[in-house]
Design a protein around this nucleic acid. Structure first.
Lengths: 344, 344
DNA sequence: CTGAAAGCGCTAACAG
DNA sequence: CTGTTAGCGCTTTCAG
């Protein structure tokens, strides 16, 4: 058969540890140990080994190494609300920020981070990882169990709302932060306060509902809840809010979860002849450029994704290293950014 | 020895293909083929195999599979300007956006994306990947050669400025976009136009310098170049610009590369008693929330990282599949966002 | 249609 | 200090 068999790419034949051993006149295990340093090697032979390796362009096959050692030096990341990444580019700000923070934290520590493809796809190929972070899991998220059943150490970044007490979990302290948001509204007893949470059943949306209910009860405010789904386009969101304002009348304050929909919400208010903050106080439960750049700028809760990422990565490395679960819950604090939309 | 030997973690013994074979009463190769479909299996045995696998909780070891097949179903990403990720959280917007876009594009296609840790670290472990994207490479970037020498298919997202004609490269069309930025300044012949590029030697900073020089020559404007390094803190940047204004006098227009330093630049101008846009026209060569949220909002070139990511991933998949290099250069178009800072 | 067996490249016992 | 050897779990010939 010729050098040139039809269309088959000519992967350069891999240089193996044996080739290096032969070239250096030593045994394969000596080469291995020269690299790993797991047993003493005389300086002279080490030099010879490295020289041979250099000359041949050797580098260890990560597949083979991982197979033997059982670990890959990488951790996985599964970022729930997948749709967060499927909208318009500008709507991916939250996804990007959390994913980017995770990557940054891993790179700092010299480990690889792999974005795990959706295992439910037919063409799915399992990915090698020493452990996995599941960010913003759904209630009873089957992904947690799937990975656990494969023996992969899992850490949740934000709790599974149906299993808040899973030991290996880091989360954002939503309750405190969200109470501060409602406090910032500065509305009086008897006022109607709308909450417009997202439709996904995760810790964040659940916290919004419960804090809203409690807070209104405590202050004698009148709670109303209207879902504003993550799946909505800007036009749909505007229409949705416009319809509600028409049907229900204007609230004294409106808190919506998704700041990527802040623009449409404000347009609907404006179209109904309502001024922010004079007629309606407005706040949102994620901070983003949308909240900052709105007119007027909108009070928002910065979820501190960087802090969550750092905590989750630390926790996972701990778990992989065989540590015991932390005694108490690990909580990072979000930060309230008060802006004009709540300042009369 | 007891179940509880000192501190050693009890990794659950892996369920292998052999276990499944035994449980199903078939041979290992049959199990393998039942999954891969690479040879005909009777429906009955396939059922038995899957049932056994399910019962035992089997899933193929990705290390072993990759070792055998030689591919892992993942691609790597090396994002240059590493420091982009080491500043304040808010300064990572560009890093996050590019990394997030890459992840999104991979997830869409069902492949894994791994952020490759810095190979120059002492504790570095090679990462398994079928190919790798190097984003924003430096001039003569050794990373390109390092990976290529290991036989890893590489694609550049933005050219190596010293090797712009490397065939497997997708890039942003800076020349056209940046000319539009300078045009938007609306300054007259004889006017002094500052360029403040970053200090990294990559395609973006080089393009800024050459377009600035050419454009000024063509319009009879007076070019001045002052580096504003990516490594500067906000305070340092402000001081740097203030010092220059003091020493050199105010320009008619100031174009700086890094929009994360837009705030400090504007503060320095303001401290020198210069108003934007009345006294000085201001523009920046990356768009970000800093440019949008500034007062006044600053004209900026949106680099279209999403488009670049999509193009680079497509190109790499092509290369991995054995395609031939594209005939011409692949260029994505940036978008100019004109804002008040250049509108008199 | 199915089984047996070789071997991917590496590491870690075990033996000097 | 160094060499020999036995696999890690999977895929893929080669035989039936």
């Amino acid at each position: 058969m010729s050098q040139q068999d039809k269309g088959v790419r000519r992967r350069p034949p891999r240089v193996t540890i044996k080739d290096v051993a032969q070239a250096a006149g030593v045994s394969p295990s000596t080469v291995s140990h020269a690299y790993s340093g797991r047993r003493a090697i005389s300086a002279k032979t080490r030099e010879r080994v490295f020289a041979a390796a250099e000359a041949l362009g050797y580098s260890a096959d990560p597949h083979a190494r991982s197979m033997r050692t059982g670990s890959s030096g990488m951790i996985g990341l599964v970022l729930r609300p997948r749709f967060a990444a499927t909208g318009a580019p500008e709507a991916s700000e939250t996804f990007n920020r959390l994913a980017g923070s995770m990557a940054t934290e891993c790179l700092r520590r010299g480990i690889g981070l792999v974005h795990v493809p959706d295992p439910s796809r037919p063409d799915y190929a399992a990915v090698p990882m020493d452990g996995c972070i599941i960010a913003h899991p759904y209630a009873g998220d089957p992904m947690i169990d799937l990975l656990a059943s494969r023996g992969i150490p899992v850490v949740c970044a934000d709790p599974d709302p149906d299993r808040p007490d899973l030991p290996w979990t880091a989360g954002v302290d939503y309750a405190e932060g969200m109470r501060a948001v409602f406090d910032a509204l500065g509305v009086e007893a008897g006022a109607k306060v709308w909450l417009m949470p997202g439709s996904e059943d995760n810790a964040w949306n659940r916290a919004a509902r419960s804090v809203h209910a409690e807070w209104c009860a405590g202050r004698g405010a009148v709670p109303e809840v209207h879902v504003l789904s993550e799946a909505l386009s800007s036009d749909e969101a505007r229409a949705c809010v416009a319809g509600l304002l028409d049907a229900e009348g204007a609230p004294a304050a409106l808190v919506h979860s998704l700041s990527k929909l802040t623009g449409p919400v404000m347009e609907a208010l404006s179209a109904a002849g309502l001024a922010v903050p004079a007629d309606v106080r407005l706040a949102t439960l994620t901070d983003s450029s949308f909240a900052r750049a709105a007119h007027p700028p909108v009070t928002a809760l910065d979820l501190n994704h960087e802090g969550l990422a750092a905590a989750a990565v630390d926790l996972l490395l701990d778990r992989i290293a065989g540590g015991s679960p932390p005694a108490g819950p690990i909580r990072v604090r979000p930060q309230l950014n008060v802006r004009e939309s709540t300042q009369p």
